[in-house]
Design a protein around this nucleic acid. Structure first.
Lengths: 217, 217, 217, 217
DNA sequence: CATGAATGAGCCTTCATTCAT
DNA sequence: GATGAATGAAGGCTCATTCAT
């Protein structure tokens, strides 16, 4: 006869699952996907390697869920921000601000989630995140264009530009082995906002064009 | 005779070295760092695996040099572009155009060189490339600021924003498993230039600020 | 009350035990020993994996008992058949017929029980089954020999020949990935009976001997 | 520049390959497929585990080749025997004799090759062996039937009966943990020959039929 | 010097068995 | 007694690196 699963047990299981996800997240944030071996995840979570497989069918699925969770959380916050009252560009600015503010605290993870190449299964989740960003940013730009606030443009590409402009100053410096100092956080946010806001408002495309050489990368 | 033989030998050695670097570059461009195993590099170069270790002490060093070479070449082209005659912002626009035009043809390699996380040794070289981009772009912005063409700003951060805005629309679609169609190349270049040019010229920072929630990534 | 509870408990225990055995048998019949993991057996039996160990000290013991039970049942039927009235060879023919008829319906299980190699503990039980077959068949042959119906022979070895001749046409086709069609069941039975009956009655041993090469397998 | 592969090196490679095959064969013969782990095979061959994969792409392929080799050798010998001069049944008797004589020396391997369930890839090779046996034996029976020496029968099924009658007395006793004594080899061969020869010559099918109970295995 | 076979640490995954609840 | 989560020892396989030829 099956014993009723007590709240305590259910809680422990849920905790375990979260522990594993948290361990994976922590390892990915610390050293990327490469550092997050199943053995390392299990050790970080304080469990045996085999236990991981009670909660996730494979390494790829575990990582996919890490990404899915982070994406869900992230996109939920940004969506909410985007849905506030106010003119579209002000909301877009707020989205940028929220993204940057949050990402500053999780640079390596943000990098992994946006740029690090991985298993196809995981890749699918990354796509969701990327498209989520583009959707939110693109919708706000479209609204601003519809209002006549800014001139028409290819918002799909521009959305990617914004994502790049937001994330690059955060993750690029990681190569230096030292995270940008905390005192720089305000500068980072301010400059990124300035950059993105300006990019959207002005229409100076193709001004002052020079001839330029072409070649292979 | 002895001299000529030496020269011939030296030539062959240099050729071998280049072959290996070219093979590694080709494999990385084709399938990222993961696809570039030592065995695959050797096969692509038409030599034995052990021979690779005659020229490079380790896989990490080989990849570091691949990155170093590509960075040297890439930065040389961009530097030349940046040194042309004309107003700073026009030259910056040209730099952006060159970067994008070249990167469109080498998306996978560009991705690997700019975003793909790897060994710390290789990472150091990536830093050189990134800093090179920032130096070139930053210098042009500084010049424009000195001229009074654009208002003062934190050009270090802005340079990263530009790099992100340039590269993201190029590598982002890779995650979708489909490279952007060739017919989109012109749209990509035009939209990225518009975005970056606008970002630099206008000064609308901190306009229309909304309150926004904060939290962890 | 206490007595009835005890009885009920004892009944439930016995039921559980049978459930486990039946589950193991079903899984072995379906996919061989490889498919019969403890977890699968427990799931099939509708109990927890740990519960299996309340009834059986190890996987090997469980499988040994599966074999033991099947052997007991099987040998009982064959013994009963062998004990019928009639001439020994007719009874032997009946034994063969019963064996084949029953085995056709349980090819995979029959295969596992007779041919599939397993743990030494389980192997011991297989021996019992094999020896049971040999004993029954041997006794009937001995009786026929005693009667003078057939010439003397090494009935121990001949019994194994019969077992092989009975089981091989049944399990051999399993290797082809396709079970022999149902319409062939009658042909199978007829041909096997003809073969075994003939083998016992005629005495043409060592006729027409040719020289033959020898060597290792 | 590629060095010419010396005969010595080529020999060493071929030897290695043979060593691995021999090691696998030995382990399978000793303890079945289960005992033949890659680590064990490598240890038996005196090489590192990874080395095995220089010669065989996977465990399944290695085992398949072990089977293929043994089958090729075995069927070649039996085919040659079957192609000798003389009446079909005499040749069939010779085939049986050769099979038994050879198999006596490799019981466990013979068992593994004929009955042990394994990977689908390996199974395919087992099919070749089984079908080879059936083809050779069936052809001889067909010839004897054509001659009028023996009455018509389903030679496909009968061939399987012969295989079973040949192999069962050899492998069955393995369950006892002790191989049949050497002094019994002659008895085994004699009795098996007698059994098979008799089975083919006499036609007593369906004689003395008794009613028999039916049921599940 | 070149070769490429050999090495073996390390990874992901499975599953018999244990034990706290 | 029952539960099923946890354990951890294997097992198959990959690949950077070494070294005899």
């Amino acid at each position: 006869m099956a014993y009723r699963r007590t709240t305590a047990v259910a809680q422990r299981l849920a905790d375990n699952r979260d522990q594993i996800l948290a361990a994976a997240r922590a390892l990915i944030a610390r050293g990327g996907f490469a550092a997050a071996t199943i053995a390392a995840v299990a050790a970080e979570a304080g469990i045996a390697t085999g236990t991981v497989y009670r909660y996730f069918p494979s390494k790829a699925e575990l990582f996919a869920e890490v990404l899915r969770d982070a994406a869900r959380r992230e996109l939920a916050v940004l969506s909410e921000t985007a849905a506030a009252d106010g003119p579209p560009l002000a909301r877009l600015d707020a989205v940028v601000s929220v993204f940057v503010t949050r990402a500053i605290r999780g640079q390596r993870l943000a990098h992994a989630m946006i740029a690090e190449p991985v298993d196809p299964t995981v890749e699918a989740e990354r796509l969701v995140l990327r498209e989520g960003y583009a959707r939110i940013l693109g919708a706000l730009m479209d609204a601003a264009i519809a209002e006549g606030t800014i001139p028409p443009r290819n918002t799909e590409i521009a959305a990617d530009c914004i994502v790049g402009a937001m994330i690059e100053p955060l993750i690029g410096p990681l190569a230096k082995g030292k995270v940008r100092k905390k005192t720089q956080a305000d500068d980072l946010l301010a400059e990124i906002r300035r950059f993105v806001n300006a990019a959207l408002r002005a229409d100076t495309a193709n001004a002052n064009v020079l001839d330029f050489p072409k070649g292979e990368f």
